[in-house]
Amino acid sequence: AAEVLKLAHFVPPAHIITKAVVDPLSNGLKDATNGELTIQVYPGGELGKGPVEQYVRALQGVADITWGLEGYTSSQFQKTMISELPGVVGEKPGYEMIWNAYDKYLKDEFPGTKPLALWVSEPNVFIMKDKEIRTPDDVKGLKIRVSGSAQGKVLEALGATPVQMPATEMYNALQTGLIDGIVTGSSAILDFKLNEVANSYTVGAPLGTVGFYLVMNQGRYDGLSDEFKKAVDDNSGFGLSKHAEETWNARGDDAIAAVKGDSNKTVVELSPEEAEAFGALTLPVTESIVKELGAEDVLAAMQGK
């Protein structure tokens, strides 16, 4: 019999999440089940406001599937979020590292749900207003918006003052000069229209990434017929995560290309040597966080060692 899965997120339908995850999953399920298993999307927080409670919504079954950022509830995802730290993603893509460690180390961080996709964003960049960043010295004393405590530590290591604020306030805060810049993935430049107020961008410094999850209520999954279960399995997991991360990376590249094409904006692309100067300060933060968690084995598993 036909069934509908409710998928909820908190961003507009035009957000990259639709192309990266929602459409492939939704079309895949439809094709695999002759249109019997479909997805109804509730975007923009229709099934509950804001990003913080997304995991709980899936866990409690308000929606069958939800999308969220691990960084909003970082205490829950301490090990998974190692993948976000500076220098971790690079040789291997983020989704591969996360799934390498998932069964043995990360599964405990996702109780009551079945992760359908786990991935990270394009690399974080400096999005600045009137401040050009070429060396770590350029960051000293600047007020930079960060989204979590790990990023805060990274910015403190660079000598900046980390500032917390909701994402929707970033535009005004940059415009009035409340903050000098933002560290986040470059796709945010387009998502939050930051290109209208930020005029200097620096890419290439190891500043980490942003991690995402798409999870499904475990009970809902268990209650599906075998045929539907197989359809879900075949259209999620490693493959969906890979597609998500690649789509995100492409979107990040588009954003950088867009600001590069604008003559009023500067895009600083750091050389490997210049990037290393940042790494000398940010990579030890990764080391100390991993050590503090006692999670050397998790990192090694992520790296496939």
Binding site: L47, G48, K49, G50, V52, E53, V56, R57, Q60, G61, V62, M165, P166, T168
Partner: peptide, 20 residues
């Protein structure tokens, strides 16, 4: 009932701790 009850909890707490 499940959705109603958990939304009651999450909307109440989310709004009463909302930065905005």
């Amino acid at each position: 009932a499940n959705s109603g009850l958990s939304l009651l909890a999450s909307e109440t707490f989310t709004l009463s701790t909302s930065a905005e």
